[in-house]
């Protein structure tokens, strides 16, 4: 369907030019372009940033930095990410949309639109990712702040995402409940646990598609603090997550059902993490 409001399509040569084009009039950044077409705004000017040097994946266990215009397929096929956190990012991405869309969709575009059902946000929250953006100058903020402060709604250009270094004894997992393989989540769930000497030293748990955007479950994660990741502790954390998560109704599922899924989902991601930690120990 033609976007009838759009009258101008430009490819700036650098970030500064892109940002000034964004400021001048009703304008919108376009990368992969899926959401520009599916969720049109009154934007008259589209600013294509895919020709800027914003694509690529670098790093390893010591931390990963990803350019905003890197596609989901590029992430999935990246040896760097396959080796990072037991490939948890790939585990998640394989369940995102379809290959046809993953070939188009960029990580930056996905984070800027910030769909409530986003699988990326749920996992990136537990990874403790930082978002970098440009609004005349460079910024780097933790992803939870990026959404808490609604930075994605502002006139900014998201430039990349950084994952921190992974300490020994750390594992993460992601799980998604959906009606079919190519569907958004009824609920998604991710966790990351750091351990030392058999005890949890840090943990993050998040659920998304509740049907609202993912949030960290702080109290549920606190259940793990200082304890060994035993079956009993996992069950306690899952129960705490059910109490803590804010869930609601939509056409896909009721709040009650989602609450059930929070319990099962948290239990399953933590159990998977347990297996992974045992496997690597």
């Amino acid at each position: 369907m033609t976007l009838t409001k759009v009258s101008e399509f430009v490819r700036p040569r650098n970030l500064t030019e892109a940002f000034s084009l964004l400021e001048e009039k009703k304008a919108r950044i376009i990368a992969g372009g899926i959401d520009v077409i599916l969720f049109p705004t009154p934007a008259e000017r589209l600013i294509d940033i895919t020709a800027l040097p914003l694509s690529g994946i670098e790093g390893g266990e010591e931390g990963v930095s990803i350019g905003a215009t890197t596609t989901m397929t590029e992430l999935l096929e990246s040896p760097v990410l396959r080796g990072y956190l037991n490939g948890a990012v790939c585990e998640m991405l394989r369940q995102v949309a379809s290959p046809l869309q993953r070939n188009l969709a960029t990580v930056g575009g996905s984070l800027m639109i910030g769909h409530p059902w986003s699988d990326l946000i749920t996992l990136f929250l537990v990874i403790g990712a930082d978002v970098t953006y440009f609004d005349g100058e460079e910024h780097e903020v933790p992803i939870d702040r990026f959404y808490a402060e609604n930075i994605h709604r502002r006139r900014v250009i998201l430039t990349g995402i950084n994952f921190p270094a992974v300490r020994r004894g750390t594992a993460a997992a992601f799980i998604k409940f959906s009606r079919t393989a190519f569907d958004i989540a009824l609920l998604n769930c991710a966790a990351l646990v750091e351990t030392a000497d058999g005890r949890c030293t840090a943990a993050r748990i998040a659920v998304g598609g509740t049907p609202r955007r993912a949030k960290l479950l702080v109290r549920a994660a606190a259940e793990l603090a200082g304890k060994p990741l035993s079956e009993e502790v996992v069950v306690q954390a899952a129960r705490a997550a059910q109490d803590e998560a804010e869930v609601g109704d939509d056409i896909r599922a009721s709040a009650d059902y989602r609450r059930e899924l929070v319990g099962v989902g948290v239990y399953r991601v933590l159990s998977r993490i347990r297996e992974r930690l045992e496997g690597s120990a």
Partner: peptide
Amino acid sequence: LTEEMLFSSRGRVRNPNLFDYKILGALD
């Protein structure tokens, strides 16, 4: 297993697209 047209209290179809109304794909 999945297909169902849903209606609002005023008779409007709430899932009139292949994003919300799910037919099975190859993986399903």
